[in-house]
Design a protein around this nucleic acid. Structure first.
Lengths: 150, 150
DNA sequence: TATTGTTATACTCTATAACTATA
DNA sequence: TATAGTTATAGAGTATAACAATA
């Protein structure tokens, strides 16, 4: 249950093996397990890592933008930022134009941890997509991006 | 929050927009919302639909096989089958070779509901992947299958 | 009036360990 | 001893409504 199956199960013959919902669910949840395992030594989980990455991006995202971009709702962002802030990895900075908005930026420690975590994740991604060539991985990435943002 | 964004958000510029974990998480969770909305009129959710589909496949899956194939753990299958059984959609049949195993098969009512649900889902999938041509959708499906089962 | 972030809350999903009956 | 299914339980993820501060 903790890794991609090495044997091809009998049920792959079923029609549902081409069902987009199932394919995405399976690759996502299996990948999440690998990612969360890899991130656990850094005290992070998959979504916290995404928030940290955006806090490191230089784009100065507001919590609202994070919610929209990550397809999470605003109250989930509150919790994620609370935890990252408690760990000293990010800070809430009041927006200049709109004082209601919090801009989330990484601390120096956040940057350092992010680099380590990113490196660790690149190896889990390689194992998650071991069945694909590097050109197929690029193709997959490109199709997923296009599906989401045209 | 309930559909794919029509506008491309500012943060797409960030490196993380190519992060496989994020791409899969986002397309999966947004798709799940659409699927669960579409299935709600049938009293189903995404995973229950997957189990029902396999119960209708003629492959006579055991609960163990369902767990492995769907990347869920056995106790989750118990709950899903309990609910489907309570709705009269599937039955547990004791395995002939191994009396410990339960084979999950669809009832006539399960078959009928499955057909209706499947038709409803095909339209949500179309809207989820509206940005892709039909050849790109086939390509995506094929890459996801290959990633999972070589 | 509308929006940003927050809190409280409920529900769903995921994971684990302990148990039973069979193998 | 090991495996299939079950139960109980805890923790993580998701969704909603109501509220304060600001627009």
């Amino acid at each position: 249950m903790n890794r991609l199956s090495v044997e091809i199960p009998r049920l792959v013959g079923a029609d549902i093996s081409s069902d987009m919902g199932l394919l995405l669910a399976k690759l996502h949840t299996v990948g999440s397990r690998l990612n969360n395992d890899a991130l656990s030594e850094f005290g992070l989980r998959e979504r916290a890592f995404s928030v940290l990455t955006l806090a490191c991006s230089g784009l100065e995202p507001t919590q609202r933008e994070l919610a929209e971009f990550l397809s999470l709702n605003p109250s989930q962002i509150v919790r994620l930022v609370d935890d990252l802030e408690r760990q000293g990895l990010v800070e809430r900075v009041q927006g200049k134009l709109d004082r209601r908005a919090n801009i989330i930026i990484s601390t120096a420690g956040g940057w350092r941890l992010h680099e380590l975590a990113r490196a660790a994740l690149s190896t889990t991604e390689a194992s998650q997509l071991a069945n694909l060539s590097s050109s197929e991985r690029r193709q997959l990435r490109s199709l997923l991006r296009k599906a989401l943002w045209a």
